[in-house]
Design a binder for these strands. Sequence first.
DNA 1: AGCAAATATTATAATATTTATATCTTTATG
DNA 2: CATAAAGATATAAATATTATAATATTTGCT
Lengths: 112, 112
Amino acid sequence: MQQPLHRFKADFFRALGHPARLVILEQLRSGEKSVHDLQLVLELDQSSVSQQLAVLRHKQMVDSRKDGTTVYYRVRDPCLFELLDVAQTIFNNHLISTQELLQQLSQETDSL
Amino acid sequence: MQQPLHRFKADFFRALGHPARLVILEQLRSGEKSVHDLQLVLELDQSSVSQQLAVLRHKQMVDSRKDGTTVYYRVRDPCLFELLDVAQTIFNNHLISTQELLQQLSQETDSL
DNA sequence: AGCAAATATTATAATATTTATATCTTTATG
DNA sequence: CATAAAGATATAAATATTATAATATTTGCT
């Protein structure tokens, strides 16, 4: 079971397992962004942003391009956005079923 | 940026960030499985399997059903498999581009 | 060369996760 | 009822991740 493939995949998902990194990837949907751009959106210090970008870089999720002193990041494989979309669908489904459950419960409470 | 939604999503991905949990989910593709079934595949002790299942349960990724003393698990939302498929596509793309890079490098080396 | 801006790296303390081990529950059966 | 089988939970030690602060590198400008 300890196949390296599963370890590799787990690493991939772990790279998505941080709010800041998710925000970064969402930001990159609309094209490349500089570290400074991201820093403004994330409201984090420069070092933290750089660190999170390093994680995404090491997991090969983003590529960077240097222009003068500024570095622009972009996602490497657009499929990644597809993945985030499917995840979003799962969250929505989950919210809906939770909502339905609550509604059901409140109805049952009403009829007591 | 510290929106709870992104925290929630990150938690979701973190739940996928462990090889054993990925194997469990892959196993559940073909329908529900008992803890014991999973234990055999994972080659882990009962407690570890139960622990990993607890993580998936808490993140609402799986549901369980008890029949006698055995507990059967299944994934809650089939969309999850879709997500794993997209992830697989990303890995494949990545392998292909790595391969192409290596090929290119070896060609350049040949022509020296 | 000297300095400032943009980004990266490193060190480290605080937290969180994993793993291993022991201890319960629950259910079935003699 | 005693015991075994299947799972779950509690907990402590080992690891890994995150946040924060300090330091380093690269580039452009004067």
